[in-house]
Structure formats: structure tokens, C-alpha cells
């Protein structure tokens, strides 16, 4: 079985060490990507979290990675966005009104309405078939309900999309690298997607 090569976009703010360790544990080779040639060489890509959206959106443009990233997505290269990296996949966010999102997912990320923010800790990720798992969240903003939703989470009566998918692009509001066995399963599935993509490209 081949070992896929997964690139974590290094946009200057992330818990990238923990994301890298967790993805390696799921069976992939990991590199940090700061330039187009490195990005183009990867079987799959990750936008990690633990960042202010405005900071990573600006860094994406400063490193001239926006167009190469969108072209990779257009070629079907799998992409996983985590937390702030997930929010960057939408059109924009209240966290940084002047920043432009990638627009891969439709909609605008807004501040959660609950009085207690950030949303910090373990909450349920609920799928449409009624199954659910605990995952770790740490965020103030979240995407609204949309067609791309594959799981939602409830907080003080408000429901937001905690996992979304469009083609080979996946986004999760929680931190799979810090969400125990469930999180490991999410990353295992993404590495499997990366492995399939690497086989398709080499076929």
C-alpha cells in the first residue's frame, strides 16, 4: 500500500505540529508547504486551525498560494480544512470582514449567538442518520447550515455545520487531531482519500 504525501499549508499560525503528528499516525508522509512547487507535489492538502482568519487569509495571498490551491482543488486533489482552515473555505467571515475566503463552500461564517464564547470543549458531532460522536471545539465563529453539511452541532439552541464536504474537499469545525478515537477515524478517512488520489494520479 502506498504512503500518500500530505502537505500542511504553513500560514504562520497553527497547531501544525499536532496536525502533522496525527496525520503521520494515520499513515501519511507530511510536509509543510509555503510555495507553489511544494504544493503541486502533494497528493492531498490540509489547512490547519488555531489562527485568526484575517491572519491566514493575508498570509495565503502574501505567499501567492491562493490560485495554486484553487487549481489543485480543481484537479481533484483532496483538501481538509480544520477550524479556522475550514472557515477559510467559505466566502468570508465576520472575524475578518475585509478578508476574502476561498469560496469553495457557499456562505458566510458568522459569530455564534450564544452568550458564552468562544465555544470551547467537547460537543456532539451529529450526522443525519442519527449517529453522533464527541469532538473537541475551540472557536467563536461558525458556518451556517448549507447544502454541503455532512454533520451539525448544537450550542445553546443554535445549530451550525461542524463538518462539510464538496467533492474531495472536507471541512471540520472541530479539531480531529485532538478529538480522541473519533478524530483519528476522521483523519484515517482523509488519508485513505489521499491514497486513492495518489493512485489515480500515478495510474
Amino acid at each position: 500500500m502506498s504512503t500518500p504525501s500530505i502537505g500542511i499549508l504553513d500560514l504562520g499560525a497553527a497547531n501544525r505540529a499536532n496536525v502533522a503528528r496525527a496525520i503521520e499516525r494515520s499513515g501519511a508522509r507530511v510536509s509543510f508547504v509555503r510555495a507553489q512547487p511544494e504544493l503541486d507535489a502533494c497528493d492531498a492538502l490540509v489547512l490547519p486551525g488555531v489562527a485568526h482568519l484575517g491572519y491566514i487569509a493575508a498570509e495565503l495571498d502574501r505567499l501567492a498560494l491562493r490560485a495554486p490551491l484553487l487549481r489543485a482543488v480543481g484537479r481533484g486533489v483532496p483538501l481538509l480544512g480544520i477550524c479556522a482552515g475550514y472557515q477559510l473555505l467559505f466566502e468570508g467571515s465576520d472575524e475578518a470582514p475585509q478578508a476574502r475566503g476561498l469560496g469553495i463552500f457557499d456562505g458566510h461564517v458568522r459569530a455564534l449567538r450564544t452568550a458564552r464564547l468562544p465555544h470551547m470543549g467537547w460537543n456532539r458531532v451529529e450526522r443525519s442518520d442519527g449517529s453522533a460522536d464527541w469532538a473537541y471545539f475551540a472557536h467563536t465563529f461558525a458556518p451556517p447550515i448549507s447544502a454541503c453539511a455532512i454533520a451539525t452541532t448544537e450550542l445553546d439552541g443554535e445549530r451550525f455545520v461542524s463538518a462539510a464536504r464538496r467533492g474531495a474537499v472536507l471541512g471540520v469545525q472541530f479539531h480531529p487531531e485532538r478529538s480522541g478515537a473519533y478524530g483519528r477515524g476522521v483523519l484515517d478517512a482523509f488519508v485513505t482519500l489521499a491514497r486513492e488520489a495518489s493512485c489515480l494520479q500515478s495510474a
Binding site: 504562520g12 499560525a13 488555531v50 489562527a51 485568526h52 482568519l53 484575517g54 491572519y55 479556522a84 472575524e95 468562544p118 470551547m120 475551540a138 472557536h139 467563536t140
Partner: peptide, 9 residues
């Protein structure tokens, strides 16, 4: 710190 890493950090 919040401007770079987000306040949740």
C-alpha cells in the same frame, strides 16, 4: 496574540 492565533488560543 489574538490577532495572529485567534482568541480561542
Amino acid at each position: 496574540a489574538a490577532e495572529r492565533f485567534g482568541r480561542q488560543c
